[in-house]
Amino acid sequence: MESLEQIKDRAETAIPGAKIDIVPNPGPANQPSLLIDNEHAPAIAKFLRDDAALRLDFCSNVTGVDWLDRVAKKTVKVKKVVDGEEKEVNQTTEEKIPGYLEAVYHLYSITHKHGAVIIRMRTEDRAAGARLPSLTPIWRSAEFQEREIYDLYGIRFDGHPDLRRILMWDEFEDHPMRKDYVQPDDFEWEPTPHDDVLARAKQHYTPRPELDGAEKITAGSGDTLKR
């Protein structure tokens, strides 16, 4: 198979205006990926699928990744005049890198039996701008998986034929796979009596009638539940 650089060059020539970056992968797995721009994503995807040498016709895995806002600290040595003397002083600058959501596609070729080529798309931000073009028209296998990303990460896929929640119920509001998701604290009892689950559950539930034996539950300290 061609190298990612070759694929990038050929795709950029084939699709005018397309912008592709190579995202390195430092680990031992050595699976670098192509970051494609959102505007031309469907065209690039179509190129990857239909190009005779590539024929990446099998989209195996589609998934989302949540990257939170980061603060990158940079320490630069700056020369300053302190008390008439020139000294090197460390100056720390903080740069805020806004977070984004990412959709990652693992592509293989069944025709040529090669792969994987990994492509990724990034949203503008994690709120209203969390939109990406859907690649379901190119690869049907993305249908359920993009729905799952929409459900769990909240990326809206433009052009998806049936974008609904898939694993959570329709009335559910948040996106549970996001890194800043806060668990609801009103779920049912868990009988591990030392957990903070118990403390929370105590706030939410009055004990059940005598039959259940629930009123006998004590926390580690031996406090009985308040009625």
Partner: peptide
């Protein structure tokens, strides 16, 4: 180490894959 990997095998039901992103911590980032 920091990085990501996608590994797949032929499970009885089809291709079973795991996609992992490590940020160098004890838990996978993704």
């Amino acid at each position: 180490p920091v990085g990501e990997a996608y590994g797949r095998i032929e499970a009885p039901k089809g291709e079973l894959g795991f996609y992992l992103i490590s940020d160098g911590g004890p838990n996978p980032y993704r």
